[in-house]
Design a protein around this nucleic acid. Structure first.
Lengths: 156, 156
DNA sequence: AGTGAAAGAACGAAAAC
DNA sequence: GTTTTCGTTCTTTCACT
């Protein structure tokens, strides 16, 4: 689907605040409420907007400790990879898991309360997974930027 | 603020789908609509819910190529760090940036269309920043898991 | 593609229990 | 905590350009 300048602007607005009413959006976009409504419905139908979510303050729900885990597997057969991936996806502490190029196979973003809970996560969950070769963890010292807003300039 | 079991369940529901009506939420929580309304307002007032956003399909807006950049600075004075952090935060391609422990100083998550656009990002934006020592980039081969839902079990 | 009008649904606040 | 009520606002559909 081809997105025009208005779609792009609309997506930008919804990525920042999805609780705006169609009326508020219509004023910012210089469109009628119905036109905004139809564009949003189309973006949802096309699967460009996948869902609407509430974002929470990590610290206030006791998940203020972010750890990045680099993981190497002992073997790289299809079977090992998919088994590992299925098990990792089950763990609620793991918010992100990417199979990546480079020295390590996987990069995980793990959220826990503190270093004590991280130790517990490592010992009881991560290292109990089979096929793990080595892991290397980096702790977040400072969160400089963390957004869900995709850059939408020059979308073709 | 102390979260009870109902708050936790409510947050879990809103993290998955924030477009549910209070009526729908009330049925799942076995509460009245008013009680749901009051709880949500309180969670917003307390800053536990920070905002509501639309999530997009990366591929469909031409940002399907995820790269993780590990960055080392040449110096680590307060001045260098804050300058670098301010400049990085301006770049729309950088969705996440964490100052981390370990071999590298910063870990960035960068979203672009393809490797060609990544090269352009590197050459024109990242390496033009002063104070950068070395960078090492890993490309995402497969996205195993990527959620914004914080784990809320055993919140104290 | 766009608009305005109108019905139906949900919100938001207040009442009383 | 609950239900009920009521005015307001938003969503959604429809007829039309």
């Amino acid at each position: 689907m081809k997105l025009d300048a208005i779609d792009t602007q609309l997506l930008q607005l919804l990525q920042q605040d999805s609780k705006q009413t169609n009326k508020q959006l219509s004023l910012q976009l210089n469109l009628s409420v119905t036109a905004v409504y139809e564009r949003i419905k189309k973006l949802e139908r096309e699967g460009i907007i996948t869902n609407y979510v509430a974002l929470l303050n990590k610290e206030k729900v006791n998940k203020g400790f972010t750890v990045f885990c680099h993981i190497k597997l002992v073997q790289h057969s299809q079977e090992y990879l998919t088994k590992f991936e299925n098990e990792i996806a089950q763990l609620p502490e793991v918010l992100e898991c990417f199979h990546v190029s480079g020295d390590y196979d996987y990069l995980l973003k793990v959220l826990v309360k503190d270093i004590k809970q991280f130790r517990s996560f490592m010992v009881n969950k991560l290292t109990t997974l089979k096929h793990i070769g080595s892991t290397q963890s980096s702790f977040s010292i400072n969160e400089v930027k963390n957004t869900t807003t995709l850059p939408l300039h020059a979308v073709q």
